[in-house]
Design a protein around this nucleic acid. Structure first.
Lengths: 189, 189
DNA sequence: ATTACTTTTAGTACCAAGTCATAAATGATG
DNA sequence: CATCATTTATGACTTGGTACTAAAAGTAAT
């Protein structure tokens, strides 16, 4: 039996979201209605036509490529920042961060967040990590939110700046690291 | 003056690669030739029409999403592995690894390669990094190939296994790290 | 059952951005 | 000037639509 209008529209929306590369004609066959009905549905649901859908997916991809380079620069989201003093960032552990077998976050993601933050907190065009001592205090699981706190400490004898980063999940410490940073004015290159 | 055919086709190819969302009409205006000429050019160069180009970019995006989750587990490519003894991995530094402004690799990528290798070299279902001392010895640039070498050392008093990882570009050391690893049999969970 | 209203289908004209094929105009070169 | 490559023009057809109008079918209420 053919479904009701509301039900059909619900499924239509899902179907298009799941497989955006589908024509009205194919949809009409699937739902056993005329092309016109599909088009009426799309209008009511404000779903754009095939070509526009494809285009928007493609544009997204185009932006991703640009964005991947930009966003990659900062791991986690900086929520508080006082240049050359302190900074805080949060990162939610998702599927992409954990070991595929167990759901424990891979160390380098925790590290990346901390390292990024150490770079971001410094008021320099480009700061580089020269050395660091780190410690993973406890495992972080998928779904947990890691809050990393960076504090800028003294300069070392060699002109490096020390940034201390501690990461927490619900106020429980999961990571600690001391980052010795080169700053752009004393580049090693 | 209008360019020669060969020159125009060379530029056309470039242009389309760079901005695939461009119509023949727009191209015709840019190169000051008729639409038909552009179409002849596309045929000779085997460049598909706008809609096909958009579609292929969109499909690429669709695959990327799946891929991103799988590849993430191993950073770099393991080329030699003797379990519980030593391992070697290589990683080519690409655009996705460097700071957008300068072309210097971000520390956490170098770290990720080393950390991954430290995990991989241990003959355990799941090894976790507990602690590590690392040092970035010199900057790594885009295009360089980083070879990471891991050696399994002694157990510590606390049952941790120490893995020493040193990374090189053309036999010049760029990174060194000592990783203290938990092994699955003495899980901390 | 008749009326009223919603939902669906049909049909036409039109559009963008092409393909395919044929023919004519233009340019360069021996 | 003849000849060949290159460019332009023209028309018919294609896909996957939009926009609009009109008719048919289904559903509910009086």
């Amino acid at each position: 039996m053919r479904k009701t209008k509301a039900e059909r529209q619900r499924l239509l929306k899902e179907t298009i979201e799941y497989t955006p590369f589908i024509t009205d004609e194919e949809l009409a066959k699937i739902f056993e209605v005329s092309i016109q009905t599909i088009r009426l549905d799309r209008m009511e649901l404000k779903i754009p036509e095939l070509r526009e859908r494809i285009k928007s997916v493609a544009k997204l991809q185009w932006n991703e490529q640009v964005r991947a380079l930009a966003v990659e620069d900062i791991v986690g989201e900086v929520v508080d920042l006082e240049l050359d003093k302190k900074a805080i960032s949060i990162m939610d552990i998702g599927r992409e961060h954990v070991f595929t077998k167990k759901n424990i976050a891979r160390g380098h993601h925790i590290f990346a967040q901390a390292n990024s933050l150490a770079v971001a907190v410094l008021n320099d065009e480009l700061a580089l990590t020269a050395k660091s001592n780190i410690r993973f205090i406890r495992q972080v699981k998928q779904g947990e939110r890691v809050v990393a706190k960076a504090v800028v400490k003294k300069q070392t004898d060699k002109g490096l700046t020390i940034v201390q980063v501690d990461s927490f999940v619900n106020n429980e410490q999961v990571f600690t690291g001391e980052f010795h940073m080169y700053r752009s004015r004393d580049s090693i290159d």
